[in-house]
Design a protein around this nucleic acid. Sequence first.
DNA 1: TACTTGTTTCAACGAGCGTTGAAGATACGA
DNA 2: TCGTATCTTCAACGCTCGTTGAAACAAGTA
Lengths: 217, 217
Amino acid sequence: MARPRRTTKEKLLDAAEKLFARKGYHGTSLRTITRAAGVDLALVNYHFGGKQGLFEAVIDRRGALLNEERLRRLAEMRRAAEPGYPSTEAVVSAFFDPILDFLEHADPGWHSYFALLAEVNNSPVWGKRLMGKTFNTTVKQFIAALMQSLPEAPPEDVYWGYNFLTGALTLSLAETGRLDVLSGGLCRSADVAALRARLGAFVSAGLRGLARRPQAD
Amino acid sequence: MARPRRTTKEKLLDAAEKLFARKGYHGTSLRTITRAAGVDLALVNYHFGGKQGLFEAVIDRRGALLNEERLRRLAEMRRAAEPGYPSTEAVVSAFFDPILDFLEHADPGWHSYFALLAEVNNSPVWGKRLMGKTFNTTVKQFIAALMQSLPEAPPEDVYWGYNFLTGALTLSLAETGRLDVLSGGLCRSADVAALRARLGAFVSAGLRGLARRPQAD
DNA sequence: TACTTGTTTCAACGAGCGTTGAAGATACGA
DNA sequence: TCGTATCTTCAACGCTCGTTGAAACAAGTA
């Protein structure tokens, strides 16, 4: 391939990404990671300060790229939709499409990365602090855009809607294979095109349904 | 309280449920569990055959109750809606309400249990096999009912829709506290009433939007 | 009382864990 | 060429892990 040779840091991040995604933080040992990376055990502490440092670096690496691309699309969408009231579909697309594009066109590490994100997002240990550290500033801008696109909806509904949206996305990214079993092979968890065709439609309709529901509170 | 004294098995299941939910399978040691249960370490192997046996017993215990209650409501709903075409809202309610009711009215162990389910569901290790073993027969009946309620939708859309539905539910059950942070305290992850008011509306509208989307495939 | 069955205690096993510090290698500027 | 900063190797530390087998205990039956 003749790419610029991977540094030790990159080797460690790649191996850790894959293994953390498969077995979780506590289920993966540094010895397994360093063996897979072809690198000495002690180098984890040298480059990342320890196991937790490596884990957070894994989250950060692609998280930064994802944030960048998401914000780029959000801005682009805002330029396209002149008046100031973006459509819910457009906001949702700007949020999902970077993920779907990375999954389809870029290196396979993104699959592991998003599967890992799925676990982190649903974990009481990491879900709050670590997801927040990396993604909150971006996510808040998307929630604001969603509110603009649903001006009649109370903010609480949009926050809950974002929660549902993230949950639907997250389980799909986990690619557990459960969908394959339930559908008897008709659907495949890893079928990004099928996901792209449906996730946005489901979520946009859900958000609008939420905004329109009979208000009791 | 004067309840019939808890057996060793129950003490272990209760402690394990809480701790597995908080820190995951690999993040929780048998020593932590047995200490919390006030029980000797070796009794895990005596009663459950090992750590994995204990874990699966935790999933099974309340899973059986949940399945029972869900099927009861599904049958009840079918009796109420004579003609044979149940509404999507009614099916979705029969699926969600048992969980929401258990969370609100029954013993607090359900909170831990559902948080644990949320992690298991999103885990590549457990998601497929263990969730399937306990829940597949029930879930398949709900998917069939969803198909009846959306006769115009291709089966693939319903399977994917169920996937999104489960994801939205699952992240909400995890109660990670992220929603609290994002909303600046306006919403609370653990607010079951707020969840009840919104989850069904979001998901039903999402499913219908999915069924109605322009078909490309 | 003696025996049986089910349960609990105790002490220990071997293995794997994350982390560390000192020694070694490497490459680069003076 | 030497010195220095960066990176890598190696061996070991103290600790916790899940599991086990033998012994102790309790309760019910004969």
